[in-house]
Deep mutational scan, measured.
Amino acid sequence: MDALKSAGRALIRSPSLAKQSWGGGGRHRKLPENWTDTRETLLEGMLFSLKYLGMTLVEQPKGEELSAAAIKRIVATAKASGKKLQKVTLKVSPRGIILTDNLTNQLIENVSIYRISYCTADKMHDKVFAYIAQSQHNQSLECHAFLCTKRKMAQAVTLTVAQAFKVAFEFWQVSKEEKEKRDKASQEGGDVLGARQDCTPPLKSLVATGNLLDLEETAKAPLSTVSANTTNMDEVPRPQALSGSSVVWELDDGLDEAFSRLAQSRTNPQVLDTGLTAQDMHYAQCLSPVDWDKPDSSGTEQDDLFSF
């Protein structure tokens, strides 16, 4: 819950932080000083300027060897085509990944977070970031790969997607708890209302004896509580940590079903599988986004697919 609360507080303090972009060759504004600060901008989305290598189908939802083989196929196909790589912007948030063309600003792909089953910074092609997700059109699994400016960037994108998945799962947990509370309150309110109706004398007997209905007592009954809980029953509950912020979080049926399955089948359902080692994760978390744009010590960066 700490990640969720800190993310909400950060967004309320400075929503404009989320509009910064990394990996864009110096076009961005001043960047936060450390990885923790940038992680807090996830709610509205972190932007990464990358190059799209392509996509291939895979048979399993996750796995280092599986993704490595898929990336190898994608890279080989991209090299064989001889075409310049498409420059894209990857927007990562707890909602998922939005992929747009840098030149036309046209939407290429919009992947809900619950469809993503794996992401990684490839070991062999260490400047490549990739994720595996279920197609929104059918049940097939797709591996999408992107060329980053350097290994640090690939690791940073991988960690960002993993963190977005974690925050999304926490949102789901909060929403589920809130819905259970509202359902319980609604049920209790309905029981109270039913009890009051059972003990209320029939209207005919009131008229016969000349008694008047006590409207004041009726007004004191917990009807307002019942209506408050039943009027918006169809509205999706939102985490309290975000009250007053500009973010509107809505959970669709697909996300609810997917996270429910994860909660039942996995020990740590909030953790998205990645190909990063503990050492890689520690190294990337210690980086400032400013470091992502620094040239690798191995030599001059080449803006070309064939540089790796």
Rank of each mutant, 00 (worst) to 15 (best):
residue 155 Q to R: 14
residue 39 R to I: 03
residue 208 A to M: 07
residue 84 K to L: 08
residue 177 E to I: 10
residue 211 N to A: 10
residue 251 L to K: 08
residue 165 F to T: 02
residue 148 C to I: 00
residue 230 T to K: 06
residue 155 Q to K: 14
residue 287 L to S: 11
residue 149 T to Y: 09
residue 52 Y to K: 13
residue 179 K to I: 09
residue 231 T to G: 07
residue 112 S to P: 01
residue 142 E to T: 15
residue 157 V to R: 00
residue 238 R to H: 06
residue 131 Y to G: 00
residue 280 D to Q: 07
residue 286 C to A: 10
residue 133 A to V: 08
residue 8 G to T: 11
residue 89 T to D: 09
residue 185 A to H: 06
residue 78 A to R: 09
residue 154 A to D: 00
residue 22 W to A: 01
residue 184 K to E: 09
residue 133 A to K: 04
residue 117 S to Q: 06
residue 270 Q to D: 12
residue 211 N to C: 04
residue 271 V to N: 12
residue 52 Y to H: 12
residue 121 A to C: 07
residue 288 S to R: 09
residue 221 A to E: 09
residue 96 G to N: 15
residue 57 L to Y: 10
residue 64 E to T: 12
residue 243 S to E: 09
residue 34 N to Y: 07
residue 141 L to T: 10
residue 212 L to R: 14
residue 283 Y to F: 06
residue 232 N to G: 14
residue 57 L to R: 15
residue 248 V to E: 06
residue 241 A to E: 04
residue 203 L to D: 11
residue 158 T to P: 12
residue 145 A to R: 00
residue 247 V to K: 07
residue 113 I to P: 03
residue 262 L to F: 02
residue 301 E to L: 07
residue 42 L to Y: 15
residue 226 V to Y: 08
residue 139 Q to S: 14
residue 239 P to F: 11
residue 12 I to F: 15
residue 257 E to P: 06
residue 144 H to Y: 15
residue 41 T to Q: 11
residue 271 V to I: 12
residue 265 S to Y: 07
residue 239 P to S: 12
residue 177 E to A: 11
residue 260 S to I: 10
residue 32 P to W: 13
residue 270 Q to G: 05
residue 9 R to D: 14
residue 167 V to W: 13
residue 239 P to E: 07
residue 121 A to S: 09
residue 152 K to Y: 12
residue 276 L to K: 09
residue 214 D to L: 14
residue 191 D to P: 08
residue 206 L to F: 09
residue 168 A to W: 02
residue 160 T to A: 13
residue 296 D to T: 08
residue 297 S to N: 13
residue 288 S to P: 15
residue 215 L to G: 08
residue 77 T to V: 14
residue 148 C to M: 01
residue 262 L to E: 04
residue 80 A to W: 02
residue 207 V to M: 07
residue 280 D to Y: 06
residue 285 Q to C: 06
residue 23 G to W: 14
residue 192 V to W: 02
residue 268 N to K: 05
residue 31 L to A: 08
residue 248 V to T: 11
residue 127 K to C: 00
residue 92 V to I: 12
residue 132 I to H: 01
residue 88 V to E: 00
residue 191 D to F: 01
residue 300 T to N: 10
residue 300 T to H: 10
residue 130 A to T: 01
residue 274 T to K: 01
residue 167 V to R: 12
residue 103 L to Y: 06
residue 63 G to T: 01
residue 174 V to R: 05
residue 108 I to T: 14
residue 60 Q to E: 08
residue 263 A to W: 05
residue 30 K to R: 15
residue 139 Q to K: 14
residue 223 L to C: 09
residue 262 L to S: 02
residue 66 L to H: 04
residue 261 R to W: 08
residue 82 G to W: 04
residue 88 V to W: 11
residue 237 P to F: 09
residue 80 A to T: 15
residue 219 A to I: 04
residue 209 T to V: 10
residue 237 P to E: 10
residue 306 F to W: 05
residue 171 F to D: 15
residue 29 R to I: 14
residue 216 E to S: 14
residue 53 L to C: 00
residue 28 H to G: 13
residue 44 E to D: 13
residue 77 T to A: 10
residue 115 R to L: 06
residue 190 G to E: 05
residue 91 K to R: 10
residue 153 M to R: 07
residue 269 P to S: 02
residue 298 S to K: 05
residue 100 T to N: 12
residue 228 A to N: 04
residue 270 Q to N: 06
residue 233 M to C: 09
residue 258 A to E: 05
residue 280 D to C: 06
residue 275 G to K: 02
residue 181 K to M: 09
residue 48 F to W: 10
residue 230 T to L: 06
residue 19 K to G: 15
residue 286 C to V: 10
residue 67 S to A: 10
residue 27 R to P: 10
residue 299 G to R: 03
residue 224 S to L: 03
residue 192 V to D: 08
residue 57 L to M: 03
residue 32 P to V: 14
residue 53 L to P: 00
residue 80 A to D: 11
residue 285 Q to L: 14
residue 204 K to Y: 05
residue 58 V to F: 01
residue 129 F to N: 01
residue 302 Q to E: 08
residue 150 K to L: 11
residue 85 L to K: 00
residue 279 Q to A: 07
residue 53 L to K: 01
residue 219 A to R: 09
residue 292 W to K: 04
residue 132 I to N: 02
residue 231 T to D: 11
residue 170 E to A: 05
residue 180 E to L: 15
residue 113 I to F: 03
residue 27 R to C: 10
residue 238 R to W: 09
residue 67 S to I: 14
residue 37 D to C: 11
residue 108 I to D: 00
residue 86 Q to A: 13
residue 16 S to Q: 07
residue 127 K to D: 00
residue 261 R to K: 03
residue 76 A to K: 04
residue 103 L to I: 14
residue 247 V to N: 09
residue 4 L to G: 11
